[in-house]
Design a protein around this nucleic acid. Structure first.
Lengths: 265, 265
DNA sequence: TAAAATATATTGTCTATACTTATGCATATC
DNA sequence: GATATGCATAAGTATAGACAATATATTTTA
């Protein structure tokens, strides 16, 4: 019988994994520490990270691992399933589980509501409305919303401040056809972004994160010099396949940067 | 007995959920469509998104849901567990499951290896090395690596091109103490970033995404005008708590932006 | 009344068992 | 040799039953 290099490695006289030793006959009394599937997960992860199971290499089957670890297959399954979800391994029926090639990095950004974002930095939050008008949207906006270019939409411009500085300039279009309630909102004291977060459901959001330099108008609103660096976040929200709103959020680059976390573990 | 507003809502004469109707006596023959736990997941999600179960509101217990759906508790458990993982709901033992407040957005960015990133855009990838020297690192770098400021490190600057344009400028420091093999690499034909991705394991990465404007030197390397917008990605990698490498990656803003996906569903 | 003990409900984990589905591999057929 | 067929294997899904952990609710006690 031909075993893969990995399977061969994993077969050892008695208990391959420290795990099995900590669980005499199991019955998940455990050492009060982590749940079993977690232990399996980290045990497998350790093997992968140590280079013991190289990228592209095959892991033992769930059944085999269950034997080695001295636990049920479902427990192993859950551990490996989560590793697969995190992109650490790839699985295919019959073909087995292989260590994923590091084809890149998966990052996760948590963008909290801006009031929190600001107060967490130790600044006082304040808000001011620059502009709120119903008007015909420019062609590219109308096209995005799939709306006849004759129909009026709501356009709001406002600012979020951290202390004295402008933290974010919000430039938003709202589809009044989809969100007629927005008509009744003045947005004098709360930004349309925050209002929508609480009052409008959405099923999908598209984002685009990029850099730009402050044009004269943008610089004036942001209270920075023309030509300074700006982090720009475009955000589009849909509800049931229908475009609800799109916004461009401008941040002075010296005030704001994104700190994503690597997934996996 | 006092039922929560939600539990009350969920109790209806016969089968609350379409699911139960599609599964007469189940035995998971299913309509060939999605697995049961997925159906439960989307059914619950639909309720939440429809506003039927508002943020902060309590969901029926797993046992209750299992009855309503006509499936086992474990199936419901898996569905809800995944929703919790995605941040849609929050769970606590005994206290039950509640719909999470929309406190913000979770985004996921997949950064593939840069060769793919470029060829996927339909450009020819090419690479050139600008600089490769061993030298004393500036104080802030030495401090980050927790290394005496007298020790030499490897500093590499190189470029990734998409067609004629410079797509990314890579400016990297490597801890030779941790990765002595890097000494043998000339990096004439492969960037240190790509080489490390394939040959060096890492346990953790920190990122920082921000905007800047091109200084004279950066602009020359990027082949853009001084003062144009640049998307800047700082990346630090660790292995077992030890800093291995840190890099700053510069992208002309007109060539590159990030397109994260919203998690959940 | 306040604190402590107890009960209870709800999620979390685990096992054993079974069936389903995809697919690599070998064999048979054309 | 090319193609079709069947088999075996490994992951995927599902169930029932059990126990664990833990917060909340209730009752008892000081």
């Amino acid at each position: 019988m031909v075993e893969s290099e990995l399977t061969a490695v994993s077969i050892r006289p008695h208990n391959v994994y420290t795990l099995a030793e900590t669980l005499p006959h199991r019955k998940f009394t455990l050492s009060g520490s982590h749940p079993l599937y977690m232990q399996v997960k980290t045990a497998v992860l350790d093997r992968i990270r140590s280079g013991d199971w190289p990228p592209g290499g095959r892991l033992p089957s769930e059944t085999q691992l269950a034997q080695d670890f001295g636990c049920s297959r479902l427990t192993v399954h859950r551990a490996i399933r989560e590793l697969a979800h995190d992109g650490v391994v790839e699985r295919r029926r019959r073909a087995g589980t292989r260590v994923a090639q590091a084809d890149g990095v998966a990052l996760e950004i948590h963008i909290r509501r801006i009031t929190q974002e600001i107060s967490q930095r130790g600044f006082a939050y304040s808000y001011d409305l620059l502009n709120r008008t119903q008007k015909i949207a420019p062609a590219y906006i109308a096209k995005f919303f799939d709306i006849p270019p004759t129909q009026k939409m709501l356009h709001v411009q406002c600012r979020h401040r951290a202390g004295e500085r402008v933290f974010q300039l919000e430039d938003r279009w709202i589809n009044l056809d989809a969100i007629p309630q927005a008509m009744d909102q003045g947005f004098e004291h709360e930004s349309p972004g925050l209002w929508m977060l609480d009052h409008v459901p959405f099923s999908r959001m598209n984002h685009d994160i990029s850099a730009c330099i402050a044009t004269a108008a943008t610089a004036r609103h942001l209270q920075v010099e023309t030509g300074t660096a700006v982090l720009q976040l475009k955000r589009q929200a849909e509800w049931n396949g229908r475009a609800i709103t799109c916004a461009t959020l401008f941040h002075p680059a010296d005030l704001y940067s994104l700190h994503p976390e690597s997934r996996s573990l």
